[in-house]
């Protein structure tokens, strides 16, 4: 197995995630796209951990998973908050503040 095959897979997932966060209007879908990006980082870390033969990558990846869970929780709470106030979770409608 090549190192770069895993890394390229990670890069592809990362870019798809980037496309998703730009293209998507629905807040929940944006959060899902962020998960794609975070998973690509984890693939990178674990590929490097195997390459370097060290455990730090595993630990780092576990911490990222934990933080990602916290972020999803916060993100969904905010989505619920705006849904309650506006009856919509279209991010594009959140443009009162500008200029």
């Amino acid at each position: 197995m090549l190192t770069s095959q895993f890394l390229l897979l990670g890069a592809i997932l990362f870019c798809i995630g980037v496309y998703g966060v730009i293209a998507r209007k629905n807040a929940v879908l944006v959060l899902m796209s962020i998960e794609l990006i975070l998973n690509s980082v984890n693939i990178n870390l674990l590929a490097f951990a195997l390459r370097n033969g060290s455990a730090d990558g595993h630990t780092f990846a576990l911490y990222i998973i934990a933080v990602a869970a916290a972020e999803v929780g916060v993100g969904l709470a905010m989505v619920l908050l705006i849904y309650r106030n506006r009856r919509s979770i279209g991010l594009d409608e959140l443009s009162e503040l500008r200029g």
Binding site: R24, D92, L94, S95, R98
Partner: peptide
């Protein structure tokens, strides 16, 4: 205006 459009998608 486009820079500070207020839209998250643009900012991202």
């Amino acid at each position: 205006q486009p820079i500070q459009s207020g839209r998250v998608g643009h900012y991202g």
